[in-house]
């Protein structure tokens, strides 16, 4: 029964998205033409693309930093065991939901109108969205800490900030650092396409070369993005292993 239901749902969904697998075979010739271009990347503008990759990494770096900066206060206020008042907890949680629900591309479109085209708009968009994600992860990490260790600090008569600094921070720090690095890897991938909507970085060139059917250039851009993402993943997982 459940199988039949699932089959129906997927069948209906296939109709909605106009699923026509045979066209893959039918248009094989076209795809061949595309592939030929992509198999011969052009290195004419390599230095320009490489510089755009640097800009992309910088967008992700600052975006993640901004995100972490937003996440710390929101995560502290949005943790049930630390929030000074249920209303504050509720407000912080809903604000984080909002930041996460809106995709970074939508934020980028807004910031492009607000601060103009370029990497700054992209970085703001990434940072705000990342702030929501990291804030939620942080608040949930805080909610799962050992309350005994916090009680041990509060019991000496320490103030709220001291309790957080001594009782909470040491317990959440390893996880939070690991989340920040994971988010940085994800932000690199987002930053590499955010240029499509005017957010700066390599994404603009990706968009431009694909739309102009400039396959050989597009292949170079994609190749560079893949290399960049791989390099960042390797470096960040090294750091993660060192830090924990």
């Amino acid at each position: 029964m459940a199988t039949l239901g699932l089959a129906l749902v997927f069948g209906a969904a296939a109709r909605v998205i106009e699923l026509r697998p045979l066209e893959l075979l039918h248009d094989a010739g076209n795809i061949g033409v595309f592939l030929r271009g992509y198999l011969h990347p052009s290195f004419a503008h390599l230095s320009e693309y490489a510089w755009q990759c640097v800009i992309t990494v910088c967008i992700a770096l600052w975006g993640t930093l901004l995100g972490a900066g937003i996440a710390v206060p929101l995560g502290l206020l949005g943790a049930r065991n630390l929030a000074p008042h249920p209303v504050v907890y509720f407000a912080a949680r809903r604000l984080m939901d909002l930041l996460r629900a809106v995709n970074e591309f939508v934020f980028a479109l807004m910031f492009v109108t607000a601060v103009g085209l370029g990497p700054f708009a992209g970085m703001l968009a990434l940072g705000i969205h990342t702030g929501g994600v990291l804030g939620k992860l942080l608040s949930e990490t805080i909610e799962s800490i050992d309350p005994g260790q916090v009680e041990g600090v509060a019991a000496v008569g320490a103030g709220r900030l001291h309790v957080i600094s001594f009782g909470v921070v040491p317990q959440v720090m390893p996880n939070f650092l690991s989340y920040i690095l994971l988010r940085f890897e994800s932000d690199i991938r987002s930053a590499s396409v955010i240029g499509m909507v005017g957010g700066g970085g390599i994404g603009f060139y990706l968009w431009d070369t694909i739309r102009a059917f400039n396959d050989r250039e597009a292949a170079t851009v994609i190749l560079l993005i893949v290399l960049m993402v791989m390099a960042v993943d390797v470096v960040s997982s090294r750091i993660r292993r060192l830090a924990i």
């Binding site: 260790q149 041990g152 509060a154 019991a155 000496v156 008569g157 001594f166 040491p170 317990q171």
Partner: peptide, 18 residues
């Protein structure tokens, strides 16, 4: 008041990572 009362717990309640 808490500053004047020292607490010892069964599970020590020290911050383990410090």
């Amino acid at each position: 008041h808490r500053a004047c009362v020292g607490m010892i717990y069964q599970q020590f309640n020290l911050v383990r990572r410090l």
